[in-house]
Amino acid sequence: MTQASQNNPQLVLAKDLVKALESGDQATARVLTQQLAAQDDKSMYEEVSSLTRDLHQTLDELDHLPLLMQTKHDIPDAAERLQYVLDTVEEASNKTLTSAENSLALIEQIMGQNPSSDIAVALQKLQDELNNIMLAQSFQDLTGQVLNRVILIISSLEQSLIALIQDAGHDYNAIPDKPKSEQELEKGIGPNVTRESKKDALASQDDVDDLLSDLGI
């Protein structure tokens, strides 16, 4: 018998079980079968707790590093940016619809003044074009549904990660703020659409002009 098999309690139990079965000792065989099954459970528990320990350790090592920072800052930031896209596209769509509706009303008004047949034909065509513009705005409903779904997925991912981080013994609230690097600002960060990025951002051209004139420009 090799060293490895001597140390394997499952193998020892299995051999005893074979012996008991061969000698017809049912009572012993039953007890040994139960013990074998218990061994299996035990090793599974050991496996799970070792995984948990590993995870804990991994997250400890990751302290203040990407996963924690991303969970606290980047994921909510991504969701907020998507919400901005959703709202802005809806607003633009509504403006287009309003303009198309107003134009259609004007056409009706002109039609009411008995225009020449040439003009009437042109107005009819114009009406069709405006209806096409209006119908094309239905993209907003479709892209909006997609964005809503992605925002939902991101939020549930965020919740799962927060749970994971807290299960590993970290205090989620204690994760520090993200430092805004000069380098990032230098590169440009695009429209300030999130609550975080609106801090210190000017809201309108008027504000920008005021600041510039204060600076003598």
Binding site: E90, L97, N131, Q137, S138, Q140
Partner: peptide
């Protein structure tokens, strides 16, 4: 009936048409 206001407007305009 639609949760997107743009879609309600579009459908209404088409029906008006």
């Amino acid at each position: 009936v639609d949760d997107f206001s743009t879609m309600r407007r579009i459908v209404k305009n088409l029906l008006k048409e």
